[in-house]
Structures are given as C-alpha cells and as structure tokens.
Write a protein that binds this DNA or RNA. Structure first.
Lengths: 247, 247
DNA sequence: ATTGAATTATACTTTATAGTATAATTCAAT
DNA sequence: ATTGAATTATACTATAAAGTATAATTCAAT
C-alpha cells in the first residue's frame, strides 16, 4: 500500500480500480470519503466530471489516511497517536495529512461519522410497534450485534476517546445510543404486556442487553472460532432467555 | 476541603479525625494511601510513632490528590487531565503533587492498585467447584456487580486509559479479568453437566455475562432509582434466566 | 516543451504540559 | 526565640507534538 502513496502521481487507473473493488470487502475503515472537506487548494472547480481521476485520487488518499489512523487510534488511543506516526506509517509527511484533513480531530470525526451513519441506518429500519415482540427483539439484537462487530474499531474509539470529541458530536452519538436503549425497552415492555416475556424492570433489562451486545467489541476476534453471524445468532438466544420468553 | 489543604499546617487533630471517620463512608477514591511512596525528603525516619500527625497529614494530602485526580481522570480522561488542573482544583501548585507522588502515572497506578486489590479479594473467596452451580453463579454475579459499581471510576479509567499503563499492570488486570471469565465459564459448564442450566457455548455465555455486568459502570448513577444491592439482585435474575436455569 | 495549478516535503513556529531548581515558608523541638 | 528539617510556591526548563510558511516537485493541458 505504502508504495501507492509515495510518489502518488505514479498511481494509475488500475490501482484505483483495485481499490474500488476492495472497497466493498474492507469492513469498516474504508468506505467513502466523499471529499466533503475541501482540499486546501483554493479552487475546487477542477474537481468535476472532467478530471475525475484527480478526485478519485484525492478520495483514495483520504481513505488511506483514515484506514491507517483508525488502526493506530484503535491500538494506541487517539491522543497517544501522533500525526507524525500516521504520516510515517503512510510513508509521507505531515503536510500530506493536513492537505487532506483540517486537523487531527477531523480525522477522528470522519471515522466516527461513518460508523454512526451505518448504525443509524441499521436501527432506523426497525419498527418496534409492529410484529411480535419476540421477532422484533430478535431482529434488533441481531442487527445490533452485527453492527457492533462490524464497527468495533470505531466503537472502541468512541467509548475510549469520547472526551476528545466536540460536544455536538458526543451528544449525537449519545442520542443514538439512547434510541437503541429506548427501542429495546419498548419491545420488552410490549412483550411483558402481551405475556410473551417474563422479566422485571424492562429499562434495566434493556441496558443489560445493550451492554452485553456492545461488550462484544472487547472480545470479538476476526480470526476466532465463530463468525459474526453465529455470534449474533447465539446472542439472540441469550437475550430471549434473559427476558424469560415463553417456550 | 480546599481550605484544609491550603495552608495545611493549620490542620488540627479534629480535621484528621473527621477524615478518619469519613474514610469508611467514601466509596472508592479515599481509602488508604499508606505512604508506600516515600516523600521526596531524604529522611523518612521522622515518620514514626512520635510524630504520627505528620504521617497522617502526609497520607491525608495524598488522599486528597487521589480523590481529585480520580474525579478528573474519570471525567476528562487521563491524558487530557493536566497536573496544573489537578493542582488548581486542590488549591495548590504542581510541586505539591510531585512532593506526594512520583509523577502523573504514579497517581493513576495508585488508583488502580487499590481497585484491583479490592476486586481480587472479592473473587478469591469464591470456590467454583463446590456448591450448586446456581448458587455459585448467583454469588459470583452479585459480588461482581457490586464490585463494578463500587469501583466504577477505576473501572472506567481502566477501560479507557489502559494504554497509559505500564505493561505489567495491564497484564495483571487482564489476568484478573480472565480469572473472572474462567470462573464464570466453569460454573456454567458445571450447571450444564448436572442439568440445572440449559445454554449453549458456556465460553461465550460467560463473556456476555461479564459484559453485561461490567457495562454497569456506564449507566449506574449513585442518585438513581435503584441501590447497588437492588441492581445486583436483579442482575442475578437476568443471568440465571440467560443460562436457562430449570425452574 | 512550457506553464500555471495542484500537491507534497523541508524545516520551521507555536503551544501545551510534564517535570524541576531554587527560594520562601512553616513546622516541631529545643 | 532559634534552628534545622519538612513542605510548598515561584518561576523556570525540557520536550513532545500540533500546526504552518515556504520552497520544491509533479501534474494536466496546451
């Protein structure tokens, strides 16, 4: 990878294409960095249909920065990771990074932004008021688990480096978490009402479910004996047991 | 409190006594700082039976530093908390801190050390091979939950600022965690063997239990509607349900 | 081949903060 | 009251790391 960045103008379409394909495989860190942050260069007109290659290159480099940063932030923590190390890892120097991102925090924000978007989409699609409580709960837990596993790097960063985020982002994230908790609570309440669940204190129960699922980020290993799907499936069993589902 | 530290030689026995009493109430941060770290002053002979007041004062000040540091580390994170802020909060200056602790990390270590000792004691007293699995599991979860709540500040710091710890401490803490996980796993296995539990994958189940319990540190509120005991009690219900206990 | 714009490196400034030398203060004991 | 030891503040140094001015390079298009 390094080589593709050093002397980056050597990049050709083939490399970009290879990246485009990879994109769909890479789990978390690489996705889309649709240059919402403009390059420092004054004119952005140049980035149109005509020279799309430039744009792709720009986005590609941002991806690389994000990918490396995610790995380092994850392993060392946000504050403990210096831009010089990120640059060194990429085989470039600091101004390269500052050309593609406003500052260090901007990188972190982009990483979390993307995770949040993904998470949001996953939960937005669940209506807790229709369907049987058991089905909905199962669906929620499964989706939740898969998202946590998929976004485990960002999840870890969030729980650790939350303090380094600006207030509005923090609130946004906390709001999403609350949303999940509320959905869980609501489903459990419905289950208790219609007699399909038997559990006390649905609020605390939902916090415990959320904890159990979120905790996965601390122990999941990509090379472990279980696949994400298997884990998610088992997780739903545990949760349904926990809420005392009628068998 | 501030006042007791500023112009500290104004302290009298009464204050120290008040502190001694308080000591047993304060949950986590204040306990014993038995000056294992010697003061920078060359001679430590002076700290004997004769002038016990000096020693008590010294320890008292260490307590204050630990207490304030814990609060700040907890709210802002270790790296983001500067010694100047700690000093300011105490109404003193930096050398005051350096006189009582070797350095910043030393403060963090003392905070965690104490938590770890406490946790260790709690789990050392549980024999997972005798007694019925249900009883043991219940006992484990209850103790575990209470410890997490009691040491939630340190627990949070550990999961967040782990990177800032020296390797040996990290290992020690992780070992303790593993110990708990193993104990949980063993009990669940025993329960499955003798037919009192009905759950798959005891290893993953124990990770989930540990996660559910540990997660408490993120949502427990001292002024919340439930007491630690109530929470611990409910937690055991959830867990026993989760492992499919025969009713 | 030449040129202006975009990109990146060199080498710098700035800032934040851990840590410390030294002087001033306060103590306990005579 | 005096004195040496313990304690703490003032004011500093050292250092790491974020961020940037400027020059050099490479690009795309003629």
């Amino acid at each position: 990878m390094k080589e593709y960045i050093q002397n980056v103008y050597g990049i050709d379409e083939a490399v970009i294409f290879a990246y485009e394909v990879n994109k769909e495989i890479l789990e978390e860190t690489v996705n889309m960095a649709q240059s919402k942050t403009k390059p420092k260069a004054k004119s952005i007109k140049g980035r149109g249909a005509k020279n799309g290659i430039r744009n792709k290159l720009f986005d590609f480099k941002r991806e690389q920065i994000l990918e490396v940063s995610a790995r380092l932030f994850y392993h060392r923590g946000f504050r403990a990771t210096t831009l010089d190390v990120i640059a060194e890892e990429l085989g470039v120097t600091k101004p390269f990074i500052y050309y593609h991102f406003e500052n260090k925090r901007d990188i972190l924000l982009h990483l979390l932004e993307r995770t949040m978007g993904k998470s949001h989409d996953v939960f937005a699609g669940v209506d807790v008021e229709s369907g049987t409580p058991a089905e909905i709960l199962k669906d929620l837990v499964k989706r939740f688990t898969l998202v946590v596993i998929e976004t485990r790097v960002s999840t870890a960063m969030f729980w650790r480096d939350e303090k380094d985020l600006p207030l509005d982002r923090k609130d946004k994230i906390r709001e999403m978490k609350r949303d999940v908790d509320n959905k869980l609570t609501r489903v459990i309440e419905r289950g208790i009402e219609n007699g399909s669940f038997d559990v006390k204190d649905p609020k605390m129960a939902s916090l415990c479910v959320a904890g159990m699922v979120t905790w996965t980020y601390t122990w999941y290993q990509a090379d472990g004996r279980s696949t994400p799907d298997e884990i998610a499936e088992r997780m739903t069993e545990y949760v349904l047991n926990m809420v005392g589902i009628r068998k």
